[in-house]
Write a protein that binds this DNA or RNA. Structure first.
Length: 603
RNA sequence: GGGGGUGUGGUGUAGCGGCCUAACAUAUUGCCCUGUCAAGGCAAAGACCGCGGGUUCGAAUCCCGUCAUCCCCGCCA
């Protein structure tokens, strides 16, 4: 080894030892005859001091060294002189007096700071990702990701799970996300698809009797990207046999609780995790992945709405549309002009989500004053009292009225909650509010295609008692599905699967799959189901999102070592790139000329 | 597929029709400096303002197009 210690571990008790450190020049402070070098590796920073008078050779090398040079330093650890301690550094009580310095490598001036936290344009960071990853913040994120995965593996191993790899080169499936295609060289005109998830294989592993499988699996989806979505991402994929919904949920909850408490450094808001039915989540929060770190619930006041004098509300209620009110704490504690402007902004937002307007009542800070707002005059004093009582409103609060079709009410509730929470800074990033959402509808009516679509995926089992509605009222069937939401993100989702071929065929038929076609696509699975399948179920976590929340980062690129841009490009290696004609010929591909992008464009 | 933001020395920003011969900070280079740790002092170098076109007497600034990137909607079983 070229080092005896890391740059983060020397303490007072090491004083007197001769050590060898190796790392990067974090900073150099040249005072002429005396040079200080902060030597950095991923464990920390240690100050090296070089005295020209006592060691001219080392001084010369130190003098020639620049930021990010790679040095090896041998010297004596000593307590720093009185008054020169640096409490900012973990190693700040000691320093290494250089006896010998070797320049293991020089470095060009880096394109951005390694040692200083500063916003750098993401393009630049991606272009020099290997330098970006040298920055402490990124190193912490990557280490946190490793610790998360290590913890999961150890935990599941102790629970008698085994990790099994499944193919990445899979085949196209008709349902689901757009896939990346891989042409076959042996089979002209045929293609593999990169696996969107190990879903089918993990179910087959249950058929094979492994009972407890997991995998930290790379998945691929060729859909448009977002801050929380990458074309390749990582799932913790897990499947268990002979279980019911509750078994999977409690195992996952125990694992997640332990993981959060031992690895993330974050605080759990709910222990045990909150549980909401899909319907409850939508009614109160307008989302199936609500952020529960704050209130801002939509409270149903349809009965009051029907009785008040507000014509729109009255007619909405008559048409069976709900009336909801959302209490925004303290939002009315501003001047009348500002309040009107803010309310107008919120109304614009609501309109964007499909609403026709957004009425409000502002409760004055001084209780003697009249309530304000365009909706105020339509409610009697008793009705206002009732509103205040039901919402728990305080002086200075703002009450927003949301009324439309359920779909619109949900959308407006969601967007208002997200926007207000962001504006009012309600989401404490140190708190993780995990919440199970369950009892999703099994299928949803697709108006465009005039057919039923699975709301999770087509292997999800219906709640057994709901199978009776299969033919009469499919929309009434609930799926044995469970999602785990956290701080407004979906971090995991799973279900108990169908384990009988006949039921699977009925579902395929229901969702409009031509049975012959379905047999072609899923024949292997249906066939497997005839050889004794255990009841089984599982879950898949979005590991990137979870680590993102643990790290307190705003997007998953910050916790992925080599991520891609929003157009799926890797700026560092310059992928994707054209393929040579010979390569294309081998895989029986010809590229249509007009589709080729002009290589000269841009830079 | 659609909407929006951003693009100015290496980096981060300012400038938003003429005062721009483009400012500031930092980094870089040179010199000085033996207790610094955001080291300090002095000096120097460094930008055809993403690219192309247009409007104008005059464009970093306004308009159109284009490229890149970020955010959002659609999409993501």
């Amino acid at each position: 080894m070229l080092k005896t210690h890391t740059c983060g571990e020397l303490r007072l008790e090491n004083a007197g030892q001769t050590v060898t450190l190796a790392g990067w020049v974090n900073r150099r402070r040249d005072q002429g005859g005396l040079i200080f070098i902060d030597l950095r590796d991923r464990w920390g920073v240690t100050q090296v001091v070089i005295d020209q008078a006592s060691n001219p050779d080392a001084h010369q090398i130190a003098s020639d060294s620049r930021s990010e040079f790679v040095l090896q330093v041998t010297g004596l650890v000593r307590r720093r002189p009185e008054g020169t301690d640096n409490p900012e550094l973990e190693t700040g009580l000691v320093e290494v007096v250089a006896d010998k310095i070797s320049q293991l490598n020089a470095s060009k001036t880096p394109p951005f700071y390694i040692h200083k936290e500063e916003k750098i344009e993401e393009v630049r960071r991606m272009e020099y990702r290997y330098l970006d990853l040298r920055r402490p913040r990124m190193q912490q994120n990557i280490i946190l990701r490793h610790r998360t995965m290590k913890f999961i593996r150890d935990y599941l191993d102790a629970q008698r799970f085994i990790e099994i790899e499944t193919p990445i080169l899979f085949k196209t499936t008709p349902e689901g996300a757009r896939e990346f295609l891989v042409p076959s060289r042996y089979h002209a005109g045929k293609f593999y698809a990169l696996a969107q998830s190990p879903q089918q294989f993990k179910q087959l592993l249950m058929v094979s009797g492994y009972e407890r499988y997991f995998q930290i699996a790379r998945c691929f989806r060729d859909e448009d990207l977002r801050g929380e979505r990458q074309p390749e991402f990582t799932q913790l994929d897990l499947e268990m046999s002979f279980v019911e919904r509750e078994d999977v949920m409690s195992l996952i909850e125990a694992l997640m609780t332990d993981l959060v408490e031992k690895v993330s450094g974050k605080q759990l808001l709910f222990k045990p995790f909150k549980r909401l039915t899909f319907r409850e989540a939508m009614e109160s929060y307008g989302s199936d992945k609500p952020d529960l770190r704050y209130g801002l619930e939509a409270i149903d006041i349809s009965d009051l709405g029907g009785k008040c004098a507000f014509p729109v509300l009255v007619s909405n209620v008559a048409e069976g549309k709900p009336v909801k009110v959302m209490r925004v704490p303290g939002a009315a504690k501003v001047s009348g002009t500002l309040l009107r402007k803010q309310a107008a902004d919120l109304e614009t937002l609501a309109r964007g989500a499909g609403a026709k307007g957004l009425a409000y009542i502002a409760l004055p800070e001084n209780e003697a004053e009249e309530v304000k707002g365009p909706a105020a005059k339509y409610f009697t004093v008793e009705q206002k009292m009732e509103l205040i009582q039901r919402t728990g409103a305080q002086p200075g609060d703002l009450l927003l009225f949301i009324s439309d079709t359920r779909k619109v009410v949900y959308a407006v509730t969601d967007i208002l909650r997200r926007t207000l929470a962001a504006q009012m800074n309600l989401g404490d990033p140190n708190i993780l509010a995990f919440c199970w959402v369950y009892d999703f509808p099994l299928v949803e009516w697709n108006e465009d295609e005039k057919r039923w679509d699975p709301s999770h995926h087509l292997f999800t089992a219906p709640v057994w008692d709901d199978i009776q509605y299969m033919d009469s009222d499919p929309g009434r069937m609930r799926g044995q599905q469970y999602d785990l939401a956290c701080n407004g993100y979906e971090v995991a989702g799973g279900s108990i699967r169908i384990h009988k071929a006949d039921l699977q065929e009925r579902i395929l038929k229901l969702i409009g799959q031509d049975l012959e076609h379905a047999r072609k696509m899923f024949g292997h699975l249906l066939e497997a189901f005839t050889y004794g399948v255990p009841p089984h179920g599982g879950i898949a976590w979005g590991l990137d999102r979870l680590v993102m929340l643990f790290a307190g980062e705003p997007n998953i690129r910050e916790v992925i070592a080599f991520p891609k841009t929003q157009t799926g490009a890797d700026i560092m290696v310059n992928a994707p790139s054209p393929a040579a004609a010979k390569q294309l010929a081998e895989v029986h591909i010809s590229v249509v000329e007009e589709d080729i992008e002009d290589e000269e464009k841009g830079s």
